[in-house]
């Protein structure tokens, strides 16, 4: 198959590209290197894929690129590109979120209509649910995002559904629950926690640590994308979680365990837009695409630690403060 991966230099996009190439598919990656974190880290993410003769890469923005050429002969589109970051979505930078998460998605959908795409998989987020007491979150749970970021991802979902219903575009929406693992963005909690603990530094923690999350290892997210593309389903919306709910305090204890060091934690008040608990009901994903998370938290954290320890000092410095 021939795949187009948007956000191909990012955490999930690059991991997915590597897996598609490994499975014998042809991949075109597109990324505009938004400056949310250092370009050097994204270039590093691309290294493996760029060694493959089945890989093409174009630096372009979905906001203005002419997409028809990139979609020529493409069977699967994996729309992983987005402006990330819940906290930064408040305030003056919202335009970046509406452009990159909503307008870019609409442009891609329009272009897919004119192409012969057999599946578009849209990367959404558990942040569309917002704070809810309705746990576990099922796909029919109310969506009340508590951050502008969540609002833009939900708007993207609605656009995908509209193009599926009105035009018959084959689509699947995947709602990712807190993804972690090698290549995780430097601003994300586990990356900061592990780096800080390895360096003997202090961890900044928002909230009391009793907030719980359904953490999902990146390989499971990748597997869900590939299964969603190949499965004979369309118009579906699926939760993709890691299969267990764990508090941040429990994660910190586990990080202490796998690094052999005691994490030093400095606690701060909960931030606007942070959700207290997330836990996914993934039974629908199991039923429709055979999704079953395979990597547990201890193994996943160990693999993220191994990745961080494999990076040279320059890349670690590029990640910025923990």
């Amino acid at each position: 198959m021939k795949a187009l991966v948007t956000g191909a230099a990012g955490f999930v996009g690059s991991s997915l590209s590597d897996a598609l190439l490994q499975a014998g598919h042809e991949v075109t990656g597109v990324d505009c290197f938004v400056d949310y974190y250092a370009r050097a880290l994204k270039e590093d993410n691309l290294k493996k894929a760029r060694q493959s003769s089945s890989y093409n890469f174009v630096e372009a923005s979905l906001v203005d690129a002419e997409l028809s050429g990139l979609l020529e002969g493409v069977d699967w589109v994996f729309h992983q590109a987005a402006q990330a970051g819940v906290r930064a979505s408040w305030g003056a930078d919202f335009r970046i979120y509406s452009d990159n998460n909503v307008y870019a998605t609409q442009r891609l959908l329009e272009a897919c209509l004119a192409a012969s795409v057999s599946k578009l998989v849209y990367a959404s987020s558990s942040s569309v649910y917002g704070d809810t007491r309705d746990l576990p979150m099922t796909e029919s749970s109310a969506t009340r995002p508590v951050s502008p970021y969540g609002v833009t991802k939900l708007a993207g979902e609605h656009l995908v559904s509209l193009y599926s219903v009105n035009y018959g575009l084959p689509t699947v929406v995947l709602r990712y629950f807190t993804v972690y693992g090698p290549r995780q963005r430097p601003d994300m909690a586990f990356n900061r926690f592990i780096r800080s603990t390895l360096e003997g530094g202090e961890i900044t923690l928002y909230g009391d640590g009793e907030q719980s999350r359904d953490f999902t290892f990146v390989d499971d997210i990748v597997a869900a994308n590939m299964a969603a593309a190949a499965a004979p389903v369309t118009g579906e919306l699926l939760n993709i979680g890691g299969g267990s709910r764990i508090t941040v305090n429990e994660v910190l204890a586990l990080i202490g365990d796998i690094t052999g060091r005691e994490p030093q934690v400095k606690r701060h008040d909960k931030q606007k837009g942070d959700v207290v608990h997330t836990v996914a009901d993934t039974s629908r994903a199991l039923e429709l695409i055979g999704y079953k998370p395979a990597v547990g938290l201890r193994e996943g954290l160990s693999r993220e630690r191994d990745w961080l320890q494999s990076l040279d000092a320059g890349l670690i410095a590029a990640m910025g403060a923990v």
């Binding site: 760029r50 089945s54 372009a60 923005s61 690129a65 028809s68």
Partner: peptide, 18 residues
């Protein structure tokens, strides 16, 4: 990575789409 001539042929200007 190949970035084959076929791909270069189908790329368009992001400003005018030409």
């Amino acid at each position: 990575m190949k970035n084959d001539p076929g791909l270069l042929d189908v790329l368009a200007c992001p400003s005018c789409k030409g």
